[in-house]
């Protein structure tokens, strides 16, 4: 799996570095002064690196917690995200990370405590109990959990933060650490889904819908709050039947009345990201679809978006109450 590990010189003896390296005894380790000289260097090709990504272990010095972009959230006004990891084990062709990062290497920050300190500080800045912290913005929250153990420690942190809510967003089925502990009330494990057709053509290396549904079902049985994330929606002429089938599949196993929240949003990308992704994958059908450019974003256009969002909203309403459905703009 991991054949190369870059480690910042400063953290060579960090206990988490040692324990992560122990999991990959055959990997070649390479020291670097700062991760940026590997991760941010010029002329890298994301697509070529994705064939054989390395792991980079580093320390993050600042900006551990950031406000989410406008429109990202599930009903609260106070929304933040944090990324203990940059890049994802999976290879979804629609993913903006391909356009955002120069490198496809997995970057893990090992100073978890600094993330938790910043989360506590941010949560304490408001007396309201609906400050949301989203994980899984720059990576999949759980896919690397057996290696990093980050989320298990994050849940420990949130268990003592009564006024903060945590969303663990994932496509992974790595839920063992969650099943091995008691649920906490201020945490939602949110699974991302696309219809079968889209998943098969665009979500490379991702666990099947069935496996994700099974994982969600097991978490519900254990008492964890769960959510559904239908983002990005990729326009198709068969969108209605695709989503009807997907939601039927999900709710044949998952209990609808125990769904904490369902959110959805259209496929859209900042123009520079889109252009880079086209350069990486010029043969990709999705990027050859009739997309439009508007206000620095590339999308399927207003009409297709409005139709698609309306369809998905209506399909969700067949299973869950209006108040738990959140469009992501």
């Amino acid at each position: 799996m991991i054949q190369t590990i870059y480690i910042e010189e400063e953290i060579l003896d960090h206990p988490r570095v040692l324990s992560i390296c122990d999991r990959f005894p055959k990997a070649t380790t390479i020291t670097c002064e700062r991760y940026t000289s590997v991760f941010n260097s010029n002329s890298q090709n994301f697509r070529l690196q994705k064939k054989n990504p390395a792991l980079i272990l580093a320390k993050k010095y600042n900006k551990h917690v950031l406000p989410t972009p406008p429109g990202y959230g599930i009903g609260s006004d106070r929304n933040y995200y944090f990324s203990h990891m940059l890049n994802c084990l999976y290879d979804c062709r629609y993913c903006f990370l391909q356009g955002m990062f120069r490198s496809a290497n997995y970057l893990v920050f090992v100073n978890y405590e600094d993330f938790f300190d910043q989360i506590e500080t941010t949560a304490s800045e408001s007396s309201a109990d609906d400050t949301w912290f989203f994980s899984g913005y720059d990576c999949d929250s759980l896919a690397m959990e057996p290696v990093t153990g980050f989320m298990n420690e994050a849940i420990d942190c949130f268990s003592s933060l009564k006024n903060a809510q945590l969303e663990i967003r994932t496509k992974s089925t790595q839920i063992r650490s969650l099943l091995n502990r008691e649920p906490i009330p201020n945490c939602v494990v949110a699974f991302s889904f696309s219809p079968e057709k889209t998943a098969n053509s665009l979500e490379h290396g991702v666990p099947s819908i069935q496996k994700r549904v099974n994982a969600m079902q097991r978490l519900q049985e254990k008492g964890w709050k769960t959510g559904i994330r239908l983002d990005p929606i990729v326009y198709s002429q068969t969108l209605q039947s695709d989503y009807a089938e997907l939601l039927d599949h999900i709710f044949s196993a998952v209990e609808a009345d125990r769904i904490h929240s369902a959110s959805y949003g259209m496929f859209r990308l900042p123009k520079p990201f889109f252009r880079k992704m086209v350069r990486l994958y010029p043969e990709e059908k999705l990027f050859s679809a009739p997309l439009t450019e508007h206000k620095a974003q590339v999308s399927f256009g207003e009409e297709a978006e409005s139709t698609s969002l309306s369809i998905v909203h209506s399909e969700l309403l067949k299973y869950v109450e209006e108040q738990v459905i959140f469009p992501c703009k």
């Binding site: 054949q3 190369t4 670097c32 690196q49 064939k51 054989n52 390395a54």
Partner: peptide, 16 residues
């Protein structure tokens, strides 16, 4: 100045 060439999938070992 330092460069970190991405390790290509090859059976050969690599070093500094």
């Amino acid at each position: 100045k330092v460069w970190y060439p991405h390790r290509i999938n090859s059976d050969l070992p690599s070093t500094n």
